[in-house]
Amino acid sequence: MDQHLAGNLALATAITLALIGIPLTLILASRLWSSLPQNRPRHTTSSESTTRPLACTTTIFLGSGGHTAEMLQLVSGLDCAHYTPRHYVVGCDDSSSVEKVHRLETLLAAKSVTRTEEKGARSRSGAGTGTEAGAGITTNRLISDIKSNRSELAYTVHRIPRSRHVHQSMLTTPFTLVKSLLVAMPLIKRLTCLTKSEAHSNTGAGKAQSTDAAGRPRRSVLLMNGPGTCLALALAVIGTRMAGVPDDQTPDLVFVESFARVKTLSLAGRLLYPLCDAFLVQWPGLVQQYPRSKYIGTLV
C-alpha cells in the first residue's frame, strides 16, 4: 500500500516537473533565440534617432598581450568627448594591461585638454589610480558622480577572473567560465546598462532641443577582441536582454577580430560571432565565410 503510494507520488512529481520543466526550457530557449542579434531587429541608431546622442558609455575588454595592444590602438582613435566614461575590464592577473591603460589615458587627457582648454578639463589621472586601488566602492562613487553631474569622468578599471587559463583543460573550463560569468553579470549591469531616461531623448522636445544636453539620449557600447574571457561579458549582456532589458538600454556588442587572423577566426571570434551586434574582421577573405562580418580595412 505504502509502496504503491510512493510510486504514485514519484510519478506525480515526475509529471509535474516535466510539465514545468519542458515549457520553461522551451521558453528560455526561445528567449535566447530571439536575444541573438541576427534574429532581432536591432535598434538602428543612425537612422532611427535624428538627435545626436549626448555621449556613449564605453566598456572595453582588454585580453592581455597582443589583444590589449590592438584594442588600445582602436581606442586611441576615438573621440573621448563622445565615448565617455570609459570602463576598462581586464583579467585578474593582467597588471601590464592596466599600466598601458593609464599610459593611454594620460595621452588622451593631454589631447582633450589641448582640444578644449576653455572647458577646464578635470584631472583624470587621480580617478584612474583611485579605482585601481579601491575596487568597487570608488568605482561606484565615480559612476554616480558622472551620472549626476554629467561631468567628464576619465575612466575606470575593473578586474574579472579569466574564463580559461592558458593550457587549461576543456573539462574544467565550464566551471571557470561560470565563475567569470558570476562576476561579469553584475559588473555589466552596473557599467554598461542604461536607465530608460538615459537611453531615450525627451520625446517631442528631443528634436527641437537637440543642442540641449539634457534632452539627448545616451548610448552604450562594449568593445571586445578576444580571447575567451570576453565571452563571459557578451553572455552577460545577452542574459540581460533575455531578462527583458530593452535593447537600447543594453550595450551594443562590437567584436574586432585580430589582424593576425587572415583565413580563420580565433576561438573567441567563432564563439562571439553569433552573439555580437557588429563583427569586424581585418582581412577581406573572412567576409565570404562569415557574411555578418564587416571588413573596413586594416584597423591596427
Binding site: T45, C56, H82, V221, V256, A278
Partner: peptide, 15 residues
C-alpha cells in the same frame, strides 16, 4: 589609420 574604426563606431552610435 585609426579613423577607420572611429568613423565606423561614430556612424553606428549616431555621432
Amino acid at each position: 589609420d585609426t579613423t577607420r574604426f572611429s568613423n565606423f563606431l561614430d556612424a553606428r552610435m549616431g555621432f
